[in-house]
């Protein structure tokens, strides 16, 4: 896997601090958990299509962004994003607040489905073809000030990790690599990658103020 792009893709430092832009014209690509996503999911679970429309507005930009980052190919990313959003519709009643926040639930669905897709594709014959069409640069567009602030905060926290922690985490999350692949790419022992991922995530979690 060759790559000359910075991680996160399109993510340059200072890409949107406080007051760096006006609120976007659309509600999509919005900030994290600005609305009460948990309550909305409760409504979606009862078949409320309007509530699902609001949920879509809150999460679709994140879901598509994750799929696009891992899969690279926009058409496949859209396919996976649609599957994930329909899964949210179908399984809203199965969201369990005891296991995490609603946003983490949706993002876990999005990342897992993307990773599953990329790995099944890797196992198939068109792996080479994918390598050829991958790595087309694209813009990550946070349209609202809130979303830019969220992104900025995460980048700042990522920046506080050691280089190896940061590389291990970003290769796995943004590209969908397994820890063994990460070890190979970085030429470090697998045991080291596993511990760096955990230590790095603990530091990231504490920096982000996650409970």
């Amino acid at each position: 896997m060759t790559d000359s792009q910075p991680w996160p893709p399109g993510g340059t430092q200072g890409a949107g601090g406080p007051g760096a832009g006006e609120p976007g014209p659309r509600g999509e690509a919005g900030g994290r958990d600005r609305g009460d996503l948990g309550a909305l999911l409760g409504q979606v679970a009862r078949g409320d299509e309007a509530a699902f429309g609001v949920v879509y507005g809150q999460v679709a930009g994140h879901v598509f962004g994750v799929a696009r980052s891992v899969l690279r190919d926009p058409a496949q990313a859209e396919e996976v994003a649609q599957e994930v959003l329909l899964e949210v519709w179908r399984d809203a009643a199965r969201f369990d607040a005891g296991r995490g926040t609603p946003m983490a639930w949706v993002m876990t669905l999005a990342h897992r489905r993307s990773v599953d897709r990329v790995r099944s594709e890797q196992a198939s014959a068109d792996r080479e073809q994918r390598a050829a069409r991958a790595d087309v640069p694209y813009d990550v567009v946070a349209e609202t000030v809130a979303a830019r602030l969220d992104a900025e905060r995460v980048r700042r926290c990522l920046g506080s990790l050691t280089e190896l922690q940061q590389e291990s985490i970003t290769l796995a999350y943004y590209r969908g690599c397994t820890y063994r692949e990460v070890a190979g790419l970085l030429s470090v022992p697998v045991g080291t990658v596993k511990t760096r991922m955990r230590d790095g995530l603990i530091r990231l979690r504490d920096c982000l103020g996650v409970e």
């Binding site: 962004g65 992104a151 905060r153 943004y174």
Partner: peptide
């Protein structure tokens, strides 16, 4: 981490 990837569908 997904917050850094938000992208217009």
């Amino acid at each position: 981490l997904a917050d850094t990837l938000v992208s217009q569908p």
